[in-house]
Amino acid sequence: MNSKILMAVALNLIFVAILLIWPLMSSPKFMISIEEKTVPLGGKLNFTISFPSTPSKVTAEVIDAELNRTVYITSLPSSREINGSIGIEEGKYRIGFHILRIRATLNGQDITEESYFSVFGAPPLELELKVENPVLTVRITNSTYAEVRDRVYARVTMGGKPVENAKLLAVSLGSNSTVTEYVRTDGDGRASLEWRANVTENSTFRVVVQAMKPGHPIASGNVTIEVIVKKD
């Protein structure tokens, strides 16, 4: 058998060996299964990790793919099958592409596998506004104007549940009137805005409020305050 034939046979054997070994080299060492590949802001990322044997150490990381920044990291229990859940908190996660990276020590070897998911916008906010005194009566004596004050109460919810730390921006429409321009909601989704105006005659003012939080469509609302002026 000449050398060319021997060389061809050897190359064929090497090629066959690569075909047989390649799936073993490229296949994942463990499996990550994500329940839903798209997760709403404020929702939960549910996943299952399956190992061929029990790992000695497991760590889960979530990486913002666009910024290449670790958003969350936690240790997981050592088990052949792990069911995990990570809260996609508002204000912490951005809308867009993310990576779930699992690091495990398996049979003394450190192994990393990844899976991917997207975060999308949360449901719209609901804004409820109420004026402490919708109609104010003021008397002007020995002066050209009178100062009046009132309070606007706001509550922000989502699906009927309170939204904490929502940002409220407000403006008062009407001459010589002001309102608290910026405030955030408390744990019950509530906030209070102080309104003031200098009046010389009967007037109606409108207070416009916008509620916003990252990932949510902006919610808007308005209330009116009527001022009745009596002069001596």
Results as ranks from 00 to 15, higher is better:
1 M>V: 10
7 M>E: 14
7 M>I: 11
7 M>A: 15
8 A>D: 08
12 N>A: 15
13 L>D: 02
15 F>K: 13
15 F>P: 06
16 V>Q: 11
19 L>T: 12
19 L>K: 11
20 L>Q: 12
21 I>R: 07
21 I>Y: 07
24 L>D: 11
25 M>N: 09
25 M>V: 15
27 S>E: 11
31 M>W: 06
32 I>V: 14
36 E>I: 05
39 V>N: 06
39 V>I: 14
39 V>M: 07
39 V>L: 07
41 L>S: 03
41 L>T: 03
43 G>H: 02
43 G>L: 02
49 I>C: 02
51 F>S: 05
54 T>S: 11
55 P>W: 01
59 T>E: 08
62 V>T: 06
66 E>W: 00
67 L>S: 10
68 N>I: 08
75 S>W: 02
76 L>V: 04
76 L>N: 04
76 L>I: 04
78 S>Q: 08
78 S>T: 12
80 R>Y: 02
81 E>V: 14
82 I>S: 01
86 I>H: 08
87 G>N: 12
88 I>M: 01
91 G>D: 00
92 K>M: 04
95 I>G: 02
95 I>Y: 05
101 R>H: 06
102 I>A: 04
105 T>I: 03
106 L>P: 01
107 N>K: 13
107 N>I: 05
111 I>L: 14
111 I>F: 06
112 T>L: 06
113 E>H: 01
118 S>W: 10
118 S>H: 12
121 G>P: 07
123 P>M: 04
124 P>C: 08
124 P>Q: 09
125 L>Q: 05
127 L>R: 02
127 L>S: 03
128 E>C: 07
130 K>H: 10
133 N>V: 13
135 V>H: 10
135 V>K: 15
137 T>M: 10
138 V>N: 08
138 V>R: 09
139 R>K: 15
140 I>P: 05
140 I>F: 11
140 I>V: 13
141 T>M: 12
144 T>H: 10
145 Y>F: 14
151 R>G: 09
152 V>D: 03
153 Y>C: 06
154 A>R: 06
156 V>Q: 02
156 V>I: 05
157 T>A: 07
158 M>E: 11
158 M>H: 00
159 G>L: 03
161 K>Y: 14
163 V>M: 11
163 V>G: 08
165 N>W: 09
168 L>V: 04
168 L>R: 03
168 L>K: 01
171 V>Y: 03
171 V>R: 10
174 G>E: 07
174 G>C: 12
177 S>D: 05
180 T>E: 02
183 V>A: 09
183 V>G: 01
185 T>L: 04
186 D>R: 09
186 D>P: 08
188 D>G: 12
188 D>T: 13
189 G>H: 01
192 S>V: 14
192 S>H: 03
197 A>T: 05
197 A>M: 07
198 N>K: 14
202 N>S: 10
202 N>Q: 07
203 S>T: 14
204 T>R: 15
204 T>G: 12
205 F>Q: 04
207 V>W: 00
207 V>M: 00
208 V>N: 01
209 V>Y: 12
209 V>R: 09
211 A>S: 13
213 K>S: 09
213 K>M: 10
216 H>R: 05
217 P>S: 09
217 P>I: 07
218 I>T: 15
219 A>G: 07
220 S>R: 15
221 G>A: 02
223 V>C: 00
229 V>N: 10
229 V>I: 10
230 K>E: 15
232 D>M: 13
232 D>W: 13
232 D>K: 14
